[in-house]
């Protein structure tokens, strides 16, 4: 028999830990509506919706947002292709150097971001590549590959090999097998990986500070406001929007991979 009652001390410690994780983020939502614009005063002296309108009319925020979205979209697309190819080859066969390739994919995220950042920056200056959105994308795609790869490889392992053999036996070629057998099975994992990669890229700041030059992505814009606060109310609103924008893909990715065990043919 297993005892399903938890000791009260453990319950309190777990609840306190979760509260510690969530309360600070909730606080952002309150500050977005405060009337105080000079300090971080608590409790807020009053509540207002004005700052939403002020933020809406700020061209620099829109420019930063659109650059961030563009970079995240392109990096995600590159990472999806590279990550899927890598996962397919590593899961599908055993070959010399297989472990090295897994390590190579994980390395950009295992080493501190500042190392990736400064390495890319010094490489750009050595090769005399001028900063553009492509230099940002180059960095982002590199560490986004691992997210797609992790999601894809977990699913590839569950796709039964006999399904692929059946497809070939029935006369399908590689491309047809990919489109009609592999893709439907790994599709949700790819979407989930893509969403996480998007969220990761949309939020990235450490590598970006080295690869952006004078350009401003939304996180860079926020970083400047954090280091030298000028418009606290606008920053508050932007912070709230960022929380909401990253929340949705994460929830979607969770729901897509939640039932990942029910892959066709997984029982074989």
């Amino acid at each position: 028999m297993r005892s399903d009652t938890s000791p009260p001390g453990l319950r309190i410690a777990a609840a306190a830990g979760l509260a510690f994780l969530h309360l600070p983020i909730l606080l952002i939502f309150v500050y977005a509506f405060t009337t105080e614009d000079k300090s971080y005063q608590w409790p807020p002296p009053g509540l207002t919706l004005d700052w939403l309108a002020v933020t809406w009319n700020r061209p620099d925020v829109w420019a930063a947002l659109s650059l961030s979205l563009e970079v995240a979209a392109v990096s995600t697309a590159i990472a999806l292709v590279l990550g899927t190819l890598c996962a397919a080859s590593v899961s599908g066969s055993r070959f010399f150097g297989r472990e090295t390739i897994s390590l190579l994919v994980i390395l950009p995220i295992a080493l501190p971001g500042i190392i990736t950042g400064i390495a890319l920056r010094s490489a750009f200056s050595l090769a005399e590549i001028p900063f553009s959105q492509w230099t940002i994308i180059l960095g982002h795609a590199t560490f986004c590959v691992v997210v797609v790869y992790n999601n894809a490889i977990a699913r590839f392992r569950r796709v039964s090999g006999s399904l692929l053999e059946a497809s070939y036996d029935l006369g399908a070629d590689g491309l047809q097998t990919f489109r009609h057998v592999i893709l439907p099975n790994i599709g949700t994992a790819l979407v989930a990986g893509g969403m996480l990669a998007f969220a990761l890229s949309f939020d990235e700041v450490i590598v970006t500070t080295f690869t952006a030059g004078q350009q401003q992505t939304l996180p860079i814009w926020m970083l400047e406001e954090l280091v030298r606060p000028r418009q606290r109310p606008v920053t508050n609103v932007v912070a709230m929007v960022v929380v909401l924008v990253t929340l949705l893909p994460i929830l979607a990715a969770y729901y897509l991979t939640r039932d990942g065990d029910q892959v066709a043919g997984s029982g074989k």
Partner: peptide, 21 residues
């Protein structure tokens, strides 16, 4: 979800929240 959401929410926003606190 209670662990995943804070993990994936924006790093800078989290730091900013602590500046407020």
């Amino acid at each position: 979800l209670g662990v995943m959401l804070p993990l994936w929410s924006s790093y800078l926003v989290k730091v900013y929240a602590w500046k407020l606190i």
